[in-house]
Write a protein that binds this DNA or RNA. Structure first.
Lengths: 121, 121
DNA sequence: ACACATATATCGCCCATCGATATATTGGCC
DNA sequence: GGCCAATATATCGATGGGCGATATATGTGT
């Protein structure tokens, strides 16, 4: 609602996940879903444009890496995955974003916190 | 992001304010700003369409009332204010919205909470 | 052979947000 | 009197971005 700062939750989640460990797109969609019992649906249409934007901002970096078959380390399938890593700049930004997010939810809570306790004007 | 449910903060704030006491538009913009040190800017372009929508949903009701001059109760200026009151349905909805909002922020926090093993707050 | 899962990526429709704008009255100030 | 800010409510349309639909390619299971 831009009253304050959207502090975009989707980005927050992705940066947080990447702050824990490097990951690739498809994995992130699964992780987000799994860790939220399906509540957080990070769809391709949302995720990939976002990763692109985050990289353009220098908050994350990417690199293609081979997928090696389970049992046979020599088996190069030629398939690749694009791994994403958070950058130092990204970590700093994440801290800021988290702080902004907490400030924002705290602010909203000050309005919710003043609960009614029956009254009629 | 619609990952989950936006649980629109602006509506949350307005419904909460009206749950405390009845109010009129201009007052709500001032209240929101005052109670947030200017952080929450509930502009006319945001507020009035929202009040209209809330009323259409039956969550609030409205009524025009005369503005009486301070010292002279007989002084009818002819000016009017539109007062808004939350409806029972609105209160119910507010409760639901608050619950949804708390669930949502809690969910986001599970991602933020899993901070990289290390630093202590 | 077929369906589904893995994996990445783009495009553009839809529509909600909100800045700009309009209108009217009152109060203060010089 | 003249002017500007504050009070008070309201509409509208462009801007932009979220995300569903879609495309592409390989792997795996039956």
């Amino acid at each position: 609602m831009a009253l304050f700062d959207k502090s975009d939750s989707a980005q927050l989640v992705v940066l947080s996940l990447l702050a824990e460990r490097a990951g690739y797109g498809y994995q992130l969609t699964k992780d987000a879903a799994a860790r939220s019992n399906g509540a957080l649906r990070l769809t391709p249409g949302v995720l990939y444009p976002m990763l692109k934007a985050l990289e353009a901002e220098g908050l994350i970096t990417s690199s293609w890496e081979e997928i090696k078959a389970e049992g046979s380390p020599l088996d190069e399938t030629g398939r690749r995955r694009k791994w994403y890593r958070i950058s130092p700049k990204g970590r700093k930004k994440l801290e800021q974003r988290i702080a902004a997010h907490r400030a924002y939810t705290a602010l909203i809570d000050t309005f919710l916190g003043a609960r009614p306790q029956g009254e009629r004007p």
